[in-house]
Amino acid sequence: MSSSKISPRDRRRSHSIRVWRDRIFVFGFILAIVIGILGLAALLFDVLVDGLPFLNWNFLNSYASRKPLESGILAPLAGTIWIVGLTALLTIPIGVGTAIYLEEFAQKNRFNRLIELNIANLAGVPSVIYGLLGLAVFVQFLFNGSRNVTAGALTMTLLVLPIVVIASQEAIKAVPSSYRDAAFAMGANRWQVVKTVVLPQALPGMMSGIILALSRAIGESAPILIISSLVWVTFVPVSPDSKFTVLPLQIFTWISQPQHDFRGIAAAAIIVLLIVLLSMNGIAIWIRSKYQVRPDQ
């Protein structure tokens, strides 16, 4: 064996090389995380420095204008609220319903496995493809060419549905089966068990999934860009068949303008968008940690 010929001195040296290699690589691994966090910090810093000077009440309360300093985000803010509201209205019953069906009602047969596989695949479809689907099915077929806020919300619903379904399934799976058994033993039928035992227990987990899905709907621009296409909207949508724009789309429009001040108001709109999204994420995390107490098993 060659190892028996290694002198104690060589072995000590090899040991110290190994120890030093360990230390150097720890530094590398920490560096990877630090770069990620610095990237986030640089992004926030960049946006704050560019945008804060433009952020004031007027900015929140006026329409987009050809003059950057008179521009505001009233129309996209209202459009975003419309889109999120309608999307929530559609996504919550369909998404939670699908999850209840798959977890509580469906037999584990090939067809239902196909549905689950299909949902997992839909979660990975690029958002721009949903835009094409919405353009062809909702705008051109259903609404006869009208690029309205309902078409946008329907498209967003299909886009975020897999997120709600998967999160709700996880929440339902986490309810101990002994709870169900107890309710069944008292004579409840399956729907009564779901309604009175499973849903209340799974609600916090579902809520955080729903909030994350809706924040995705708020931040997503590519499908809305294809559906709405309209760039200068200077009115608040008043009904489900109004034309609309949303915050990310307005930001995109301003970034594409050549004048430098438009960059500033784009950054100001980004600050508003990030405040909305980060507080929604915060609420989701808070709900999860506050209510999702693991029952004793």
């Binding site: 990620g36 990237g39 986030l40 640089a42 992004l43 960049d46 946006v47 994350l212 924040s215 708020i218 931040g219 997503e220 621009s221 590519a222 990310p248 930001i251 995109f252 970034i255 784009a266 950054a267 980004i270 968008l273 990030l274 999204l277 980060l278 994420n281």
Partner: peptide
Amino acid sequence: VLAGIPTVVYGYF
């Protein structure tokens, strides 16, 4: 948090 930031913001960045 990085995964929750909208892509249009990354584009700006």
